[in-house]
Write a protein that binds this DNA or RNA. Sequence first.
DNA 1: GTCGGATAATGTCTAGGACAAAGTCTGGGC
DNA 2: GCCCAGACTTTGTCCTAGACATTATCCGAC
Lengths: 309, 309
Amino acid sequence: MNKEELISEEAATDRPAVNISSVERDTGLSKDALRVWERRYGFPQPYRDAHGERIYPSDQVDKLRLLKRLLDQGHRPSKVIHKSLEDLTALCAEAETPTHSAEVESLLALVRTHDSVQLRQTLTQILLRDGLRRFVVEVAVPLNRAVGNAWMRGEIAVFEEHLYTEQMQSLMRNAIASVQLRGHSPRVLLTTLPTEQHGMGLLMVEALLTLEGVYCVPLGVETPATDIVAAALAHDVDIVALSFSAAFPARLATSSVRELRDLLPPEISLWVGGDGMLRARTPGDGVEVLRSLEGVLGALGEWRARLAD
Amino acid sequence: MNKEELISEEAATDRPAVNISSVERDTGLSKDALRVWERRYGFPQPYRDAHGERIYPSDQVDKLRLLKRLLDQGHRPSKVIHKSLEDLTALCAEAETPTHSAEVESLLALVRTHDSVQLRQTLTQILLRDGLRRFVVEVAVPLNRAVGNAWMRGEIAVFEEHLYTEQMQSLMRNAIASVQLRGHSPRVLLTTLPTEQHGMGLLMVEALLTLEGVYCVPLGVETPATDIVAAALAHDVDIVALSFSAAFPARLATSSVRELRDLLPPEISLWVGGDGMLRARTPGDGVEVLRSLEGVLGALGEWRARLAD
DNA sequence: GTCGGATAATGTCTAGGACAAAGTCTGGGC
DNA sequence: GCCCAGACTTTGTCCTAGACATTATCCGAC
């Protein structure tokens, strides 16, 4: 394939060096952190342009991306910053659970070959065959994780991940919309806190809850704490559910959950979940930490049992 | 309503003062800009905590939000920064085109009263009554604008805007998915550049194009330029279409569009649109600037006519 | 083994200074 | 009257380098 070659060549060689703003965007590391790392650890070591401004070559940006991922997993900068790209990749791979079913593996292959028509068709078939609940738990969750890992290892391109996310979201929204609303209790508000832009977890929870006859108020992502409280009161919800991805700073997660808990009326439950909550310390009383997607159903059962008392 | 009162009281008095990071998040103004404005213009003038760090009271954050909106409309900081909150609100109101149909006005009322069930139902009814094309052009576009303006004037809360966006997106995605794919040409890639997080415009364009038998590759938001090129080649598209909201820095828009145009093969067309393109200077040859959503259909007609030659 | 306190690691804040890019004004030529 | 070039002004982002709160880690004592 002539085009394939063009793409890999582009990715391998032609990538231009970029300024500090772009690196902040692409890696998620703040400008302050980038400068202070350079001062303290000697990495990154960008070139300077005619005005003394930092210019980061693409291989350093690659390493920074990898470092950010490792920090999100709980590693410390000084311990990993001087390792080689290969060592870092290996370290990332360690943390992975490579338990993909054959089906997930074949879906991942479709993402890799950007065969979007086939991908959508296959996902739809599986959804119809297994039902929404099994689809979410057995396909969407592991496939999300597999795509994330593959992207991190550089096996799939950004645009392939984007297209996958778009298709999966579209599918999930359609499925949710087509579930006949059977019940109306409890009422659950779904959202993330500011800076948390990953909404896929919310959609998966919304799917499971809607199937169980729960009334969901989906607020999308990045709702400030005061607005969550206002929305919870306005929509008279019983439960507020928040999702945190691994990229969310662990300490911020704990403190802002605590803060939200104090702002919310005590009779409204607060559920938190997502990869970002696995590393965070427990945020204290009155907060239910869900350690897996299935945990949502357990918590729902408990809530209903408590209501029955 | 007891709850309504609680919410407005909350909004009016109890809002806590916040640090510079929060202000950056909430207003979209960079920390550097906030500090340099303070130095140069004397506004904002935050308090300091025990360590000399800036603490912004909520009324100053309100004014900053308004200022950001005015800058996005082309005003200059020195001209507006010392005006009162009332003057700024009036200035914002000037720029508005208050041409709402009665129908849009009643939908806006549903958003204001966060009657989400009724809102979804009404939108679905209108969609079925008028068809997707009229729905997008006559309802979605003006309602989006009306909601944005109302939010800016403080007439609707953040969470109301969030819920509206979520519902409208969900509806549009469902409608798009249910359009039987009739044709497959041209092939159009849809996305935004990094930092541009508003994807509603893309969805509206996707809806119109899909109705016309166009094959769309929706990449969601924030795709880096090099990945857009890679995706365009991999999916063999004829056209790349980008959307810019008013919040996108005008100069960045022009320069990055120019840059992308130079990276893309000349036989691939580049279409750009959205409120952010109305202020930007024309990015030069080989770029089609769409000044309205209907412009998309015009450009499509031209493309097909050229193909027929 | 586990708890508490000292020590180290780390990110974000601070202050001004500098400069390029873009906007605005001004004067001259047609 | 109109338009263009060059000068001036405005504005955002970058720079350095220091400080400090917060969180991990270590180490000794119980």
